[in-house]
């Protein structure tokens, strides 16, 4: 088993595609469409990596990032965004994000 990855994105299409690509590579994945769902998924089983969309319907992705980081400071979190600006990227990294990827995602 390569690892357990939680993918958070409000777009189910994006979510499923990303999960399928990762599963192709042999990762075990779990998806979440909202911020609160993501938090409960993470609480159920601590993943090795979280891929987090910054634009979520219920809560700001950065807020979710902050919350996860406060409980699991060592958990690597990858931020994906559709409208990445340098400020959000810097802010995300400052909050402890592992990296910042801009959509559309590439292999």
């Amino acid at each position: 088993m390569k690892g357990y990855v939680v993918v958070v994105d409000d777009e189910s299409e994006v979510l499923s595609t990303v999960r399928e690509v990762l599963e192709d590579e042999g990762y075990i994945t779990e998806g979440a469409l909202t911020g609160s769902e993501a938090i409960s998924v993470i609480e159920r089983k601590l993943p090795d990596l979280v891929i987090l969309d910054i634009w979520l319907p219920d809560r700001d992705g950065l807020e979710i990032l902050e919350r996860i980081k406060s409980v699991h400071p060592d958990l690597p979190i990858l931020i994906i965004s559709g409208h990445g600006t340098i400020e959000t990227a810097v802010k995300a990294v400052k909050l402890g994000a592992f990296d910042f990827l801009e959509k559309p995602l590439d292999r």
Partner: peptide, 25 residues
């Protein structure tokens, strides 16, 4: 523009990833 960019960019991810997956698989 922001919303438009977001809404258009979002489906681009599955399109691109799927295409790449097609190629690979």
């Amino acid at each position: 523009a922001r919303r438009l960019a977001h809404e258009i960019k979002n489906p681009l991810t599955p399109i691109k990833l799927s295409a790449q997956r097609l190629l690979k698989k």
